[in-house]
Amino acid sequence: MSAIKVFKEAAFAENSVWKQVLGICSALAVSNLIKNSLVMGIGVMFALALSSLTVSLIRNFIPRRVRMIAQTLIIASWVIMIDLFLKAFMPEVSKELGPYVGLIITNCILMGRLEAFAAKNTPYLSFVDGLGAGFGYTFVLLIIAFFRELFGFGTVFGLQVLGSWWTPWSIMVMAPSAFFMLALLFWYIQNKYYLK
């Protein structure tokens, strides 16, 4: 299997959000601003790729009955290391990320990909799969965030695009709108690509 195919499958055909319905909590929580979604998405991409690489490297030594504990330990360690790295070398970015980095540990996409792919495949492909799944997750977040921010604040990436004539739809900023947007996205994707 080629790396490009693995990336495409992880990002689109087997997208963690719309195909496997994973990572919904964070997708709902952070998707009311594009900037927040992008930051969360990039964090997940790095944490997932590095965790996948690590699990794949030691996959033949991990005893089956403790694999979940091992995976959680690996994910948490990488997330904390990314957090420390950002605090020391990119403090402004770290400040922007705020609590998002810690939230990555609880994202079930990470456990899902480690269990479904990294535990059975080579390190290189697992790394690519991690990047792909992270990219797919970011992609979904950005689509939802675009509409929520546009209608909720009248802005895109913090820039005002709808004039003062626009009355912001407050519900788009709040959690319920994320459910509607996610459901609409699921409906569209499922109809267009899967239910043929």
Binding site: P63, V66, L73, S77, L84, F89, P91
Partner: peptide
């Protein structure tokens, strides 16, 4: 084996985190 494996894994990753934390502490 599972117990020993987890002890080793925890020691390695805790060590890595401790090392990383101490190397970046002053800067932070």
């Amino acid at each position: 084996y599972p117990i020993v494996f987890i002890i080793i894994l925890t020691t390695v990753f805790t060590g890595m985190l401790a090392f990383f934390y101490h190397s970046t502490k002053d800067k932070v």
